[in-house]
Amino acid sequence: MHEIILKLSETTFAALSSVAKAEDVSIGQVIRDAINRDLSRREKAKTPVRADERLVAPLRALLADDFAYARDWDDLMHRLRKKGYRLAEAGGGLILQNHASGQRLCKGSELGYSYTQLLRKFDAPFPGHAHNALLNRIRYETSSSPAHDMR
């Protein structure tokens, strides 16, 4: 074991003493247990779900024209469906799924098209998406930007 020197306020020391006495252990043990719990929690903390780039790169190439040339959400969904894919809401964004199985393949942003970018492009929220207020914010930012005033 390594030994460290730890400075604590009187209040913290009194609280640790009380816990240690109630649990019939040393203050050091209370601190070690707390550190171990925190490290364990951090290890189990939710990590961002990222798709394997070896899967995403071919999908990005396959679907690039569909995202680039779609006129609206219906057109994009039709184009993706023809290739066996679909978009679905996930949190504040979109994910690409296998159309038949519903298996999650990657985030829309990993394909190069975030939900915000598609909102701007289509000027409409994804059908049924819970985050519709985002479009109003985008419209406000666009209308209040200096570039907008020069048109």
Score class of each variant (00 low, 15 high):
110 E>D: 08
120 R>C: 10
94 L>G: 06
50 R>I: 07
69 Y>A: 14
10 E>N: 12
87 L>F: 06
15 A>G: 05
131 H>F: 05
19 V>E: 07
85 Y>T: 01
89 E>K: 08
46 K>N: 14
37 R>H: 06
99 H>R: 10
11 T>E: 15
51 A>H: 06
43 E>M: 08
115 Y>G: 02
49 V>D: 13
29 Q>M: 07
83 K>R: 14
67 F>S: 03
19 V>H: 07
91 G>F: 05
46 K>L: 07
77 M>E: 15
35 I>R: 04
56 V>C: 14
94 L>A: 08
143 S>Q: 09
96 L>P: 03
9 S>E: 10
107 K>G: 12
116 T>I: 00
56 V>H: 12
44 K>V: 04
76 L>F: 07
39 L>H: 13
44 K>W: 06
9 S>P: 02
25 V>H: 08
90 A>S: 15
112 G>M: 02
112 G>Y: 03
81 R>W: 09
43 E>S: 07
27 I>D: 11
88 A>C: 03
47 T>V: 01
42 R>N: 11
47 T>W: 00
25 V>Q: 12
111 L>F: 05
110 E>L: 00
1 M>H: 15
48 P>Y: 14
140 Y>S: 10
79 R>M: 10
139 R>V: 00
15 A>D: 13
40 S>H: 05
149 D>I: 00
111 L>V: 01
29 Q>I: 01
2 H>Y: 14
23 E>P: 01
